[in-house]
Write a protein that binds this DNA or RNA. Structure first.
Length: 265
DNA sequence: CTCAGTGTTCAGTG
DNA sequence: TCACTGAACACTGA
Protein backbone atom coordinates (compact mmCIF):
# COMPACT_ATOMS: atom_id res chain seq x y z
CA UNK A 1 0.00 0.00 0.00
CA UNK A 2 2.26 2.70 -1.21
CA UNK A 3 1.31 6.03 0.28
CA UNK A 4 3.61 9.03 0.68
CA UNK A 5 6.05 7.41 3.17
CA UNK A 6 6.66 4.36 0.99
CA UNK A 7 7.16 6.49 -2.08
CA UNK A 8 9.62 8.62 -0.11
CA UNK A 9 11.50 5.46 0.82
CA UNK A 10 11.66 4.65 -2.90
CA UNK A 11 12.97 8.14 -3.59
CA UNK A 12 15.75 7.70 -1.05
CA UNK A 13 16.72 4.36 -2.57
CA UNK A 14 16.84 5.95 -6.01
CA UNK A 15 18.86 8.88 -4.70
CA UNK A 16 21.38 6.60 -3.03
CA UNK A 17 21.75 4.17 -5.91
CA UNK A 18 21.43 6.40 -8.95
CA UNK A 19 22.47 10.01 -8.36
CA UNK A 20 25.46 10.89 -10.52
CA UNK A 21 25.34 7.53 -12.27
CA UNK A 22 25.04 6.97 -15.99
CA UNK A 23 22.46 4.50 -17.27
CA UNK A 24 24.34 1.69 -18.96
CA UNK A 25 21.23 -0.24 -19.79
CA UNK A 26 17.46 0.25 -19.40
CA UNK A 27 15.15 -2.74 -19.59
CA UNK A 28 11.39 -2.35 -19.84
CA UNK A 29 8.82 -5.13 -19.63
CA UNK A 30 6.40 -5.45 -22.53
CA UNK A 31 3.43 -3.89 -20.77
CA UNK A 32 1.30 -1.23 -22.45
CA UNK A 33 -0.78 -0.71 -19.34
CA UNK A 34 2.01 0.28 -16.98
CA UNK A 35 3.81 2.13 -19.79
CA UNK A 36 0.67 4.16 -20.45
CA UNK A 37 1.97 7.18 -22.41
CA UNK A 38 5.15 6.04 -24.17
CA UNK A 39 5.94 2.53 -25.35
CA UNK A 40 8.41 0.45 -23.31
CA UNK A 41 10.85 0.70 -26.22
CA UNK A 42 10.65 4.48 -26.32
CA UNK A 43 11.31 4.66 -22.60
CA UNK A 44 14.38 2.45 -22.69
CA UNK A 45 15.73 4.29 -25.74
CA UNK A 46 15.37 7.68 -24.10
CA UNK A 47 17.08 6.63 -20.87
CA UNK A 48 20.15 4.83 -22.12
CA UNK A 49 23.34 6.85 -21.66
CA UNK A 50 21.71 9.51 -19.47
CA UNK A 51 23.17 10.54 -16.12
CA UNK A 52 20.84 10.84 -13.13
CA UNK A 53 20.90 14.32 -11.62
CA UNK A 54 18.23 14.04 -8.92
CA UNK A 55 15.48 11.87 -7.43
CA UNK A 56 12.34 13.92 -6.67
CA UNK A 57 8.92 13.31 -5.22
CA UNK A 58 5.59 15.06 -4.85
CA UNK A 59 2.82 13.13 -3.12
CA UNK A 60 2.83 9.61 -4.53
CA UNK A 61 4.63 10.65 -7.73
CA UNK A 62 8.35 9.91 -7.94
CA UNK A 63 10.68 10.95 -10.72
CA UNK A 64 14.31 10.89 -11.80
CA UNK A 65 15.79 13.92 -13.52
CA UNK A 66 18.68 13.45 -15.93
CA UNK A 67 21.47 15.59 -17.34
CA UNK A 68 19.43 15.87 -20.53
CA UNK A 69 16.16 14.62 -21.97
CA UNK A 70 12.86 13.88 -20.25
CA UNK A 71 12.41 12.83 -16.64
CA UNK A 72 11.31 9.32 -15.73
CA UNK A 73 8.05 9.57 -13.77
CA UNK A 74 6.90 6.65 -11.62
CA UNK A 75 3.65 5.99 -9.78
CA UNK A 76 3.40 2.83 -7.68
CA UNK A 77 -0.34 2.27 -7.92
CA UNK A 78 -1.33 -0.25 -5.28
CA UNK A 79 1.51 -2.73 -5.45
CA UNK A 80 4.51 -1.02 -7.05
CA UNK A 81 7.82 -0.42 -5.28
CA UNK A 82 11.44 0.41 -6.02
CA UNK A 83 14.33 -1.95 -5.33
CA UNK A 84 17.99 -1.05 -5.36
CA UNK A 85 20.61 -3.77 -5.46
CA UNK A 86 24.24 -4.27 -6.34
CA UNK A 87 24.96 -7.92 -6.86
CA UNK A 88 21.75 -9.83 -7.46
CA UNK A 89 21.62 -10.56 -11.17
CA UNK A 90 17.95 -11.58 -11.01
CA UNK A 91 15.33 -8.95 -11.69
CA UNK A 92 12.63 -9.03 -9.00
CA UNK A 93 9.48 -10.97 -9.80
CA UNK A 94 6.88 -8.84 -11.65
CA UNK A 95 9.53 -6.31 -12.69
CA UNK A 96 8.41 -3.57 -15.09
CA UNK A 97 11.57 -1.49 -15.31
CA UNK A 98 15.21 -2.08 -14.52
CA UNK A 99 17.99 0.48 -14.80
CA UNK A 100 21.57 -0.73 -14.74
CA UNK A 101 24.24 1.88 -14.02
CA UNK A 102 27.89 2.22 -14.97
CA UNK A 103 29.02 1.05 -11.52
CA UNK A 104 26.94 -2.13 -11.82
CA UNK A 105 24.27 -1.05 -9.33
CA UNK A 106 20.68 -1.47 -10.38
CA UNK A 107 17.28 0.01 -9.71
CA UNK A 108 14.10 -1.90 -10.47
CA UNK A 109 10.36 -1.28 -10.19
CA UNK A 110 8.18 -4.38 -9.77
CA UNK A 111 4.38 -4.08 -9.89
CA UNK A 112 2.42 -7.37 -9.72
CA UNK A 113 -1.06 -5.83 -10.07
CA UNK A 114 -0.15 -3.38 -12.81
CA UNK A 115 -1.94 -0.33 -11.44
CA UNK A 116 1.37 1.52 -11.39
CA UNK A 117 2.40 3.89 -14.19
CA UNK A 118 5.73 4.65 -15.86
CA UNK A 119 5.96 7.71 -18.14
CA UNK A 120 8.37 10.28 -19.53
CA UNK A 121 7.82 14.00 -18.85
CA UNK A 122 9.81 16.92 -20.20
CA UNK A 123 8.66 19.18 -17.36
CA UNK A 124 7.53 16.80 -14.61
CA UNK A 125 6.41 19.53 -12.21
CA UNK A 126 4.75 21.65 -14.86
CA UNK A 127 2.50 19.09 -16.53
CA UNK A 128 -0.03 16.47 -15.42
CA UNK A 129 -0.19 14.41 -13.36
CA UNK A 130 2.12 16.28 -10.96
CA UNK A 131 0.77 19.74 -11.84
CA UNK A 132 -2.71 18.65 -10.73
CA UNK A 133 -1.62 17.69 -7.21
CA UNK A 134 -2.24 19.66 -4.05
CA UNK A 135 0.36 20.43 -1.39
CA UNK A 136 2.76 17.73 -0.21
CA UNK A 137 2.43 17.56 3.59
CA UNK A 138 6.10 16.64 4.04
CA UNK A 139 7.49 19.37 1.78
CA UNK A 140 5.14 22.31 1.96
CA UNK A 141 2.47 22.25 4.64
CA UNK A 142 0.39 25.44 4.40
CA UNK A 143 -0.17 27.51 7.55
CA UNK A 144 -3.54 27.18 9.24
CA UNK A 145 -5.10 30.08 7.34
CA UNK A 146 -3.99 28.66 4.01
CA UNK A 147 -5.14 25.19 5.00
CA UNK A 148 -8.59 26.46 5.84
CA UNK A 149 -8.78 28.47 2.62
CA UNK A 150 -8.03 25.36 0.55
CA UNK A 151 -11.05 23.61 2.05
CA UNK A 152 -13.29 26.56 1.33
CA UNK A 153 -16.96 25.60 1.40
CA UNK A 154 -16.53 22.04 0.21
CA UNK A 155 -19.16 19.78 1.71
CA UNK A 156 -17.28 16.56 0.93
CA UNK A 157 -16.69 14.16 3.83
CA UNK A 158 -13.45 14.95 5.64
CA UNK A 159 -12.14 11.49 4.73
CA UNK A 160 -12.91 12.15 1.06
CA UNK A 161 -11.11 15.47 1.35
CA UNK A 162 -7.96 13.88 2.80
CA UNK A 163 -7.96 11.29 0.00
CA UNK A 164 -8.36 13.97 -2.70
CA UNK A 165 -4.88 14.21 -4.25
CA UNK A 166 -5.75 17.63 -5.67
CA UNK A 167 -6.22 18.92 -2.13
CA UNK A 168 -3.30 17.22 -0.45
CA UNK A 169 -0.91 14.88 -2.24
CA UNK A 170 0.25 11.59 -0.75
CA UNK A 171 -2.45 10.62 1.76
CA UNK A 172 -3.96 7.18 1.18
CA UNK A 173 -6.52 5.06 2.95
CA UNK A 174 -4.78 4.11 6.20
CA UNK A 175 -3.13 7.51 6.72
CA UNK A 176 -6.48 9.26 6.30
CA UNK A 177 -8.02 7.00 8.95
CA UNK A 178 -5.04 7.50 11.27
CA UNK A 179 -5.27 11.29 10.97
CA UNK A 180 -8.97 11.25 11.83
CA UNK A 181 -8.50 8.84 14.75
CA UNK A 182 -5.74 10.93 16.28
CA UNK A 183 -7.69 14.13 15.63
CA UNK A 184 -10.87 12.79 17.20
CA UNK A 185 -12.96 13.59 14.12
CA UNK A 186 -15.47 11.17 12.57
CA UNK A 187 -14.64 10.36 8.92
CA UNK A 188 -18.09 11.11 7.49
CA UNK A 189 -18.25 14.68 8.83
CA UNK A 190 -18.64 17.28 6.04
CA UNK A 191 -15.40 19.25 5.72
CA UNK A 192 -17.16 22.64 5.79
CA UNK A 193 -18.82 21.89 9.13
CA UNK A 194 -15.59 21.37 11.06
CA UNK A 195 -14.70 24.02 13.63
CA UNK A 196 -11.26 25.64 13.91
CA UNK A 197 -10.13 23.38 16.75
CA UNK A 198 -10.92 20.28 14.67
CA UNK A 199 -9.22 21.69 11.58
CA UNK A 200 -6.12 22.57 13.60
CA UNK A 201 -5.99 19.04 14.99
CA UNK A 202 -6.35 17.53 11.52
CA UNK A 203 -3.64 19.75 10.06
CA UNK A 204 -1.27 18.96 12.94
CA UNK A 205 -1.88 15.18 12.74
CA UNK A 206 -1.49 15.21 8.98
CA UNK A 207 2.00 16.63 9.42
CA UNK A 208 3.06 14.55 12.41
CA UNK A 209 1.80 11.20 11.07
CA UNK A 210 3.45 11.64 7.70
CA UNK A 211 6.72 12.80 9.28
CA UNK A 212 6.75 9.88 11.72
CA UNK A 213 6.06 7.29 9.00
CA UNK A 214 8.84 8.78 6.88
CA UNK A 215 11.21 8.88 9.86
CA UNK A 216 10.81 5.12 10.43
CA UNK A 217 11.13 4.48 6.67
CA UNK A 218 7.52 3.22 6.71
CA UNK A 219 8.54 0.08 8.58
CA UNK A 220 5.24 -0.62 10.32
CA UNK A 221 6.74 -2.31 13.41
CA UNK A 222 8.43 0.97 14.25
CA UNK A 223 5.20 2.98 14.33
CA UNK A 224 3.77 3.67 17.81
CA UNK A 225 1.52 0.94 19.23
CA UNK A 226 -1.01 3.62 20.12
CA UNK A 227 -1.76 4.15 16.43
CA UNK A 228 -4.96 2.76 14.95
CA UNK A 229 -2.81 1.35 12.15
CA UNK A 230 -1.76 -1.76 14.10
CA UNK A 231 -5.27 -2.75 15.10
CA UNK A 232 -7.44 -2.12 12.05
CA UNK A 233 -6.53 -5.01 9.75
CA UNK A 234 -8.47 -8.18 9.24
CA UNK A 235 -11.60 -6.43 10.50
CA UNK A 236 -12.79 -8.91 13.12
CA UNK A 237 -15.96 -7.77 14.86
CA UNK A 238 -14.16 -7.47 18.18
CA UNK A 239 -11.18 -5.40 16.96
CA UNK A 240 -10.00 -2.86 19.52
CA UNK A 241 -7.28 -0.21 19.82
CA UNK A 242 -4.35 -0.41 22.25
CA UNK A 243 -6.57 1.41 24.75
CA UNK A 244 -9.38 -1.12 24.30
CA UNK A 245 -11.68 1.12 22.26
CA UNK A 246 -13.96 -0.66 19.79
CA UNK A 247 -13.03 -0.22 16.12
CA UNK A 248 -15.84 0.10 13.59
CA UNK A 249 -15.33 -0.82 9.94
CA UNK A 250 -17.55 0.81 7.34
CA UNK A 251 -17.39 2.35 3.89
CA UNK A 252 -16.79 6.09 3.72
CA UNK A 253 -15.88 7.97 0.54
CA UNK A 254 -16.04 4.65 -1.25
CA UNK A 255 -13.26 3.11 0.83
CA UNK A 256 -13.01 0.65 3.69
CA UNK A 257 -12.72 2.89 6.73
CA UNK A 258 -11.68 2.02 10.28
CA UNK A 259 -12.74 4.43 13.00
CA UNK A 260 -13.45 4.57 16.71
CA UNK A 261 -16.84 6.10 17.55
CA UNK A 262 -15.83 6.37 21.21
CA UNK A 263 -13.15 8.97 20.44
CA UNK A 264 -14.22 10.40 17.06
CA UNK A 265 -17.27 12.63 16.73
C1' DC B 1 -13.90 -21.43 -6.11
C1' DT B 2 -14.76 -16.69 -4.34
C1' DC B 3 -13.50 -12.31 -2.84
C1' DA B 4 -11.11 -8.30 -0.37
C1' DG B 5 -8.04 -4.89 -1.15
C1' DT B 6 -5.20 -1.23 -3.08
C1' DG B 7 -5.13 4.00 -6.07
C1' DT B 8 -7.27 6.15 -9.62
C1' DT B 9 -10.52 7.28 -13.21
C1' DC B 10 -14.83 7.42 -15.39
C1' DA B 11 -19.87 7.07 -16.32
C1' DG B 12 -24.14 7.92 -14.37
C1' DT B 13 -27.15 10.13 -10.77
C1' DG B 14 -28.92 13.68 -7.96
C1' DT C 1 -20.49 22.86 -10.28
C1' DC C 2 -20.27 19.66 -6.75
C1' DA C 3 -20.47 15.25 -4.65
C1' DC C 4 -21.70 10.64 -4.36
C1' DT C 5 -22.05 5.68 -6.04
C1' DG C 6 -20.56 1.88 -8.40
C1' DA C 7 -17.77 -0.19 -11.72
C1' DA C 8 -13.58 -0.93 -13.91
C1' DC C 9 -8.80 -1.77 -14.02
C1' DA C 10 -5.12 -6.53 -12.80
C1' DC C 11 -3.73 -9.49 -9.78
C1' DT C 12 -2.36 -12.01 -5.43
C1' DG C 13 -3.24 -14.41 -1.56
C1' DA C 14 -6.34 -15.85 1.95
Amino acid sequence: MPELPEVERGRKIAELVATGQQVRRARCADDRIVFCDQSPRTVSNRLRGRTVRAACRHGKQLWLEFDQGPALLLHFGMTGSLHGYTTDPERPRFWKLELEFENGHRLAMPDPRRFGRIRLRNDPRGEPPVSLLGFDPLLEMPDFKGFKALIGRRSISVKGLLLDQGFCAGVGNWIADEILYQSGVAPQRPANELDDAELRAIRRCLGSIVRKAVAVDSVSDRLPRSWLFHHRWGKPEEAVTARGEAIRIETVAGRTTAWVPEVQS
